[in-house]
C-alpha cells in the first residue's frame, strides 16, 4: 500500500443531508447534546411510531446489555461496542446497534439493525424493499428464508414419500403373500416386540391335520384356497392385539397378548379346532380338515426367550398329534 502523501479524509468531517442519512441508514437515531432525539430514520420511525423527535433517548430505546437506562452519557461510553437493545415500543424484539460520538460533544449517532428479528419486524411493521438500504443484506436474508422454507417443504415431502414407501415395503416383507397374515419374519418381529413389552403372553402353534391329503387329491390351487380360508378363520378368532403368522406349509402361530390362563387358552384352542373342522367349500368341493394345537406360556416376570417358547409350543403340538390329533396341549410352564 502506498503510504506517501496526506491520508485522505483524516481529520476532516463530512456533512450529510437528512435524506442522504435516510437512504444510507434508514434505521438511524441522531441524539443531540441534551440527550433528546433530533432525527430518526424512516424505517425506525415506522417501527417506533411517530413523534420520536424531542424525546429523551432512554424513552425511545432500552438497552438489554448492559441493562441500564440509555442515557447519552452511557451511550458515549459504549462507543464501538456492539449493542443489544430494543425499542420501548417493541420490547419483545431484540435489535442490534452501534453508536458513535458526534464531533465537539454535539451528541451521538446510533444506527440500528433488526438482526435476527428481521422476519418478525417485516411481518409486524409490513416493511417493504424500500425500507432497507440497498447495501443492506436484509432483503437477501429474507429471500433466503423463503427459499429455504420452499426447499425444506419439498425435502419434507420427499422424506414423507420415501418413508411411506419404506413402511409399505417393510410391511410387505413381513407378510405372507398367500394368506396375508405375518410370515416367519413378521412373526419373529412380533414375538420380539411382545417380549420387550414386559407383558405375559402365550404362543399357540396350530398345525392343520389332513391338509396334505387335500393338497394331493384336489391340487395346489385348492390347497392355497384352503390355507387362505384357515388363516381367515384364525384371524377371526383373535383379538386385535393378538397376532397371527404362518411359518410353514400348514403351520400357523398365534400370539396372545397378556393372556396366560391355561383354561382360557384351552377353550380358545378347542373353539379354533371346532371352527376349522366345519366343512370348507373350496372350488366347489367340500373339504374337511382339523387341527392339532400346542400352547406355551411366557408368564414372566422376565419374558421367556421367543425361540425357546416356540420350541415348547412345538413339543406340546407334537403331544397333541401323538395323542390322536384334533386336540389342545398346554406345555407345562418351563
Amino acid at each position: 500500500m502506498n503510504m506517501a502523501g496526506p491520508p485522505v479524509g483524516q481529520g476532516r468531517v463530512i456533512g450529510l443531508s437528512g435524506s442522504a442519512l435516510d437512504r444510507l441508514m434508514p434505521m438511524h437515531l441522531w441524539i443531540g447534546a441534551s440527550g433528546l432525539v433530533v432525527r430518526a430514520g424512516p424505517t425506525l420511525a415506522r417501527m417506533a411510531g411517530d413523534g420520536l423527535c424531542g424525546q429523551p433517548l432512554e424513552r425511545v430505546i432500552a438497552l438489554r446489555h448492559p441493562a441500564r437506562a440509555a442515557t447519552l452519557d452511557l451511550m458515549l461510553r459504549l462507543q464501538g461496542t456492539p449493542l443489544k437493545l430494543n425499542l420501548t415500543a417493541a420490547p419483545d424484539m431484540p435489535l442490534k446497534g452501534m453508536v458513535v460520538a458526534l464531533p465537539a460533544g454535539s451528541g451521538a449517532f446510533l444506527n440500528l439493525s433488526p438482526g435476527l428479528s428481521l422476519v418478525e419486524a417485516v411481518n409486524r411493521f409490513d416493511l417493504t424493499l424500500q425500507d432497507f438500504a440497498a447495501t443492506d443484506l436484509a432483503v437477501e436474508l429474507l429471500w433466503l428464508v423463503e427459499a429455504k422454507s420452499a426447499v425444506t417443504t419439498e425435502l419434507k415431502r420427499l422424506a414423507n414419500r420415501l418413508n411411506g414407501a419404506r413402511a409399505s415395503a417393510e410391511a410387505r416383507a413381513a407378510t405372507d403373500t398367500l394368506t396375508n397374515v405375518a410370515n416367519r419374519r413378521g412373526l419373529e418381529a412380533m414375538l420380539t416386540r411382545q417380549a420387550a413389552s414386559g407383558r405375559p403372553f402365550a404362543v399357540m402353534q396350530v398345525d392343520l391335520d389332513h391338509f396334505k391329503a387335500i393338497n394331493d387329491t384336489h391340487g395346489h390351487a385348492a390347497g392355497d384356497a384352503l390355507l387362505q380360508e384357515a388363516a381367515a378363520i384364525l384371524r377371526g378368532q383373535c383379538r386385535r392385539r393378538d397376532g397371527v403368522g404362518r411359518i410353514g406349509g400348514d403351520e400357523f402361530v398365534l400370539v396372545f397378548d397378556d393372556l396366560v390362563d391355561p383354561r382360557v387358552l384351552h377353550r380358545i384352542g378347542q373353539r379354533l379346532i371346532e371352527r376349522l373342522e366345519q366343512p370348507i367349500e373350496v372350488n366347489g368341493q367340500t373339504c374337511r380338515i382339523s387341527a392339532s394345537i400346542g400352547v406355551a406360556l411366557s408368564t414372566g416376570p422376565a419374558p421367556t426367550d421367543p425361540v425357546r417358547l416356540l420350541h415348547e409350543a412345538d413339543r406340546a403340538l407334537y403331544e397333541s398329534k401323538r395323542a390322536g390329533r384334533g386336540r389342545v396341549t398346554i406345555a407345562a410352564p418351563g
Binding site: V122, T128, L142, V145, S149, T152, T153
Partner: peptide, 9 residues
Amino acid sequence: FSLKGAAAP
C-alpha cells in the same frame, strides 16, 4: 407483493 407473509413451511 409485500415482504411479509412468506409462505408458511
